[in-house]
Design a protein around this nucleic acid. Structure first.
Length: 480
RNA sequence: CGGGGCGUGGCUCAGCCUGGUAGAGCGCCUGGUUCGGGACCAGGAGGCCGGAGGUUCGAAUCCUCUCGCCCCGACCA
């Protein structure tokens, strides 16, 4: 028995994660470029599934795709005071082009609110131009000091939605609508349960009135911000002079929103479902759902097995592993590490008996069934897997969410938690939304993840720091 | 930016202290035997030892400079 190339979660969760990403052939560090990664075919295919699922929903809610420039004039960033302050430290700037020093440097986009502001000002004159609903699929660069594959890389892929509305109410509806879209994709497609909520003022997007997020829990108990949706108010409208004339003939600034999810979701997917044997993909996220490993010795056996395999593969849309020079065992490990939901084994014994062996990736259960029942069994198994994986993740979230009623208690629960050691929890506590309180939590390197939109706890209570009455408990956790 | 580690065949690393013909395992190629959970045997290809300079008869090894990567903290989708 060869030693597993994957570090067990128990031993070191962070290393386990790296191992799963690499052994699952999802991505590898770019090495030649600091903090960047190469997304490999197996990883990019997952991104393509996400893109399809999200894009379909964006279109269904009335959005259209656009593409904006990668480079932003430096002065644009400075137009919104909070925005530039928030992003300055992590900008990459182009100062030389065409062999000449540029008069005004270009910033490589960390996000496109400013460019959007500029073009919205050109495109919007009347209330009839509203709402303006656009989305961009793009890459962005944020010069982060600490990177981890998929979770935080210097360059990453994402989508950023940008909308403009004539009223704040309408903009807020949009913010929540898109947050709901994210939650739906996370839960129904990725089988990754999330907590929807409002970010504290200290944690909001630079330049927003308020930010909303979906937070998910990884297997080590750390929180992952899986998606954000921002109520930008009229901040960017004023900064970029995006005005429209109302029905009554009055001029007003537009109310904007922006929302995004990134390749980070792939990291979340991995850390939600995978195990010590490697990647586990929920069926809806798997581009290759079923693989057949044929087993044979002699050429005559090979002929009959391959014939049966071809017929069954066609029936269930399976990929046949025809690679030569690899034993069946090696092939099982190969697909297991890559997270394929169902692996079918087909050998001479099965062909003779009219059977086939079906193996589920998540539970590891193996079953021998008649070939005539295969199509129905595959469909049923994929459905059950999707359901079971979500239920399991949801249970883990519930099991690791605890209530605390004092700052000391919160600290005790979270103090020793690290990405490597795990043991993280979502701690529900009453806390006033005040930057000073966020700072107190930061002292032990935890943070307020969000204030849930739906309070599933005991309603109002006294803030664990100030003692003031607050409406509900917030989620406090260590996070990525 | 502070602390730590590391650059040697595709990968993981040994060799460096004590200078003297560049190694191992895995992977790869060829042939044969295998094949129901990581097969075995035989043969083979592949490296100016991150870069520059210096010391020396001679440098992967010693000295100086330099570039880069990884890990740990402060910042973050």
């Amino acid at each position: 028995m060869a030693e597993s190339p994957i570090t067990p979660r128990e031993k070191d969760f962070a290393t386990w994660y790296q191992d799963v990403v690499i052994q699952g052939d999802m991505a590898e560090p770019a090495e030649i470029v600091k903090g960047c990664m190469v997304i490999k075919p197996n990883g990019y295919a997952v991104w393509e599934v996400l893109q399809r699922e999200l894009d379909t929903r964006f279109k269904a809610t009335g959005h259209q795709n656009v593409y904006l420039p990668l480079l932003i004039p430096e002065s644009f960033l400075k137009k919104e005071a909070e925005h530039v302050e928030g992003f300055s430290p992590e900008l990459a700037v182009v100062t030389v082009a065409g062999g000449k020093k540029l008069e005004e440097p270009y910033v490589i986009r960390p996000t496109s609110e400013t460019i959007v502001g500029h073009f919205f000002a050109k495109w919007i004159q009347s209330h009839r131009d509203l709402p303006m609903l656009i989305n961009q699929w793009a890459n962005v660069i944020r010069w982060e000091l600490r990177t981890r594959m998929f979770l935080r890389t210097t360059e990453f892929l994402w989508q950023e939605g940008h909308t403009a509305h004539s009223t704040h109410e309408e903009a807020l509806e949009e913010v929540i609508r898109m947050l709901d879209v994210y939650a739906e994709v996370a839960e129904d497609v990725m089988a990754m349960p999330v907590v929807k909520g409002v970010k504290t003022r200290a944690e909001k997007f630079a330049g927003a009135l308020r930010s909303y997020s979906i937070e998910s829990m990884m297997q080590n108990g750390l929180a992952l911000q899986a998606g954000t949706s921002h109520d930008l108010g009229q901040n960017f409208g004023k900064a970029f002079d995006v005005q429209f004339q109302s029905k009554e003939g009055k001029l007003d600034y537009v109310w904007q929103t922006s929302w995004g999810v990134s390749t980070r979701l792939i990291g979340g997917l991995i850390m939600t479902h995978s195990d010590d044997k490697g990647l586990v993909l929920p069926p809806k996220m798997a581009h290759r759902k079923v693989v057949i490993v044929p087993i044979f010795r002699k050429d005559d056996e090979k002929a009959i097995v391959m014939e049966a395999a071809a017929k069954l593969a066609k029936e269930v849309g399976a990929h046949i592993d025809t690679r030569e020079g690899h034993s069946p065992g090696a092939k099982f490990f190969h697909w297991e590490r890559r997270g394929v939901p169902i692996v079918l084994e087909l050998g001479p014994r099965d062909v003779a008996a009219g059977n086939i062996v079906i193996k589920r990736r998540d539970s590891g259960t193996k079953e021998i069934i008649p070939q005539t029942e295969l199509a129905a069994k595959v469909a049923e198994t994929l459905e059950a897997m999707q359901r079971d994986m979500f239920a399991k993740a949801k249970q883990r979230l519930a099991d690791n969410t605890v209530v605390a009623n004092s700052l000391g208690e919160v600290r005790e629960i979270l103090d020793d938690v690290t990405a490597e050691k795990g043991g993280g929890k979502f701690v529900m506590a009453h806390l006033k939304d005040d930057p000073a309180n966020d700072a107190a939590i930061k002292e032990f390197r935890a943070s307020v993840r969000n204030i849930p939109l739906v309070d599933e706890y005991d309603g109002p209570g006294k803030c664990i720091i100030t003692g003031e009455e607050v409406a509900q408990r917030v989620v406090i956790a260590k996070s990525y």
